[in-house]
Design a protein around this nucleic acid. Structure first.
Length: 465
RNA sequence: GUAGGAAUUGCCAAGUGGUAAGGCUACAGAUUGCAAAUCUGUCAUCGUGGGUUCGAUUCCCUCUUCCUACUCCA
């Protein structure tokens, strides 16, 4: 497995801390609002990584946190009058359900910041003892000047007078780069007792503390892979790496992976631009697997420009896989075709080269159809195809639906009956060579948004779109 | 402003120092009563201008355009 490492800015061979094991930590969402397409893309990228590593035989421990205490959540409390717990549990629940709809498995461990307060406090205490922390009027800060390797992740220049567009920070900070590890609470805000005063943890410290608590190995590196969105490189991951290195004398992660952004019409999604695209809205219109396939179809590091036209083109590609699945009419498998499997895994093991992997899938579909055209009764072939598709279900989580149901998404049972009645009538008309009538029925079906196809296995129908 | 990243056919999107995967669309053919589905075939010289090289889309420099970070953010 080759992975692109943000630190070295190149692909590197994946060498785990412990043989055949992979420890992965991914920054999850701050749960103050519904998940948008960007959250989906990030979750999808690392879900793919996890699946590929598993297929490679690694025993994967996958951790994804929920940031459940934060300024934005507090703002939401004030705005909505709801309690912290109400807000947080609502959005966590939604997040997990929506991600499951995309075929994303829950993480093995899903730590929350509020469940790790003592670990966070201990972590800060230790840093304070080692001389990396100082306390001012509004919180406990990390002194970045004490860390000679600060900026080693993001590659920023240390001497850069990076105060160009600085929002006025706390003037008591020793250096603008310094960041809060513990923030003292104001009147009416949720707070936790600490040696420094009541307050809440800073954003960066929670990840460091939770990694230490749930994943860390001894030795040079605590974990194998740390992932998240590209916007987290600085300052979030820089600060995490810095804290962990100073607290433990270990490096946090050997490989840092960052996914690209989802853009809408070429622009970053953001609330201020008013172009946020919530996953829940997308899921109302499109099936989760169709969205998964689309969002997964370009490389995880590239930016992704979301639009409906491309989504429909992408769906057509997935349709072909499902037509093949429908065509073989069996759930019995034999063994995955070796060349297919090898080509697919070679592509995915090259820093998750999904484009190449999907080209391999396309080729499998086309050649399977071609052979089936010639040998429609070849059972062994059908079993192999079924196994190939099962492998895709496992590694890419595509092709998982019932092939008939896939083409009937959004059709009610009543409509289904009606459609099938019409098809029977048409077949009768066809049998008596009354083509005028059969074509009229076909037009009627088309008007209903149904496309029919006469195959050797009988007349099939699909919902158009 | 500073720092990263990107520019590939009508659209999406891989990739490589030796003349560019795959998908969608389009066109032609096979198949079909006609369609649809399926199969077969056709369709690019890689943003601009230089340089290095026997040879560059691929390496270096200029320019242009776009994205991101520096401010909460996947």
């Amino acid at each position: 497995m080759q992975l692109y490492n943000t630190i070295s800015k190149q692909k590197e061979k994946f060498i785990p801390i412990e043989k055949n094991k992979a420890k992965i930590y991914v920054c999850g969402p701050t749960v103050y609002d519904d998940a948008h397409l960007g959250h989906a893309r990030s979750a999808l990228a690392f879900d793919l990584l996890r699946r590929v590593l598993k297929a490679d035989g690694y025993q994967v421990t996958f951790v994804k946190n929920f940031t459940d205490i934060d300024d934005k959540i507090i703002a939401k409390m004030k705005e909505s009058g709801k309690t912290l717990d109400e807000i947080v549990s609502h959005y966590i629940d939604r997040y997990k359900k929506e991600m499951q709809a995309l075929g994303i498995e829950d993480a093995d461990i899903e730590p929350k910041a509020t469940e790790s307060i003592q670990d966070i406090i201990d972590f800060i205490k230790h840093l304070e003892e080692k001389g990396f922390a100082y306390t001012i009027n509004d919180g406990v800060y990390f002194d970045t000047s004490k860390d000679s390797q600060y900026f080693s992740l993001s590659g920023r220049k240390v001497d850069e007078s990076q105060n160009q567009s600085r929002v006025e920070g706390n003037s008591e900070k020793r250096d603008p780069k310094d960041f809060a590890m513990w923030k003292f609470s104001k009147e009416g805000e949720p707070s936790y007792p600490s040696p420094w005063g009541d307050g809440r943890p800073g954003w960066h410290i929670e990840c460091s503390a939770m990694i230490k608590k749930h994943l860390a190995s001894d030795g040079e590196y605590q974990i194998d892979i740390h992932g998240g969105g590209a916007d987290l490189i600085f300052p979030h991951h820089e600060n995490e790496a810095c804290q962990s290195r100073c607290e433990s004398d270990q490096k946090l992660a050997r490989y840092w992976m960052h996914n690209g952004f989802v853009q809408i019409d070429g622009e970053k999604m953001s609330k201020s631009l008013g172009n946020s695209f919530f996953l829940k809205d997308a899921l109302k219109v499109y099936d989760g697997e169709i969205l998964r396939f689309y969002l997964l179809s370009s490389h995880y590091r590239a930016n992704f420009n979301f639009n409906e036209e491309d989504l429909l083109a992408s769906k057509k590609r997935l349709d072909k896989l499902y037509r093949l699945k429908k065509r073989i009419q069996t759930d019995k498998g034999s063994a995955v075709n070796k060349i297919f499997k090898k080509s697919l895994m070679n592509a995915l093991n090259d820093d998750l080269n999904i484009s190449q992997a999907l080209a391999v899938v396309d080729e499998m579909v086309a050649s399977s159809n071609e052979t089936l055209d010639r040998e429609p009764k070849n059972k062994a072939l059908k079993y192999e195809i079924r196994s190939n598709i099962s492998f895709l279900e496992e590694v890419l989580a595509i092709g998982t639906l019932n092939a008939y149901a896939y083409f009937q998404i959004g059709i009610s049972n009543e409509e289904k009956e009606h459609i099938e009645t019409l098809i029977l009538k048409r077949n009768d008309a066809k049998a008596s060579k009354d083509y005028e009538k059969s074509d009229a029925i076909r037009d009627e079906l088309t008007a209903l948004g149904i496309q029919i196809m006469d195959t050797t296995e009988g007349t099939m129908w699909e919902k158009i779109k």
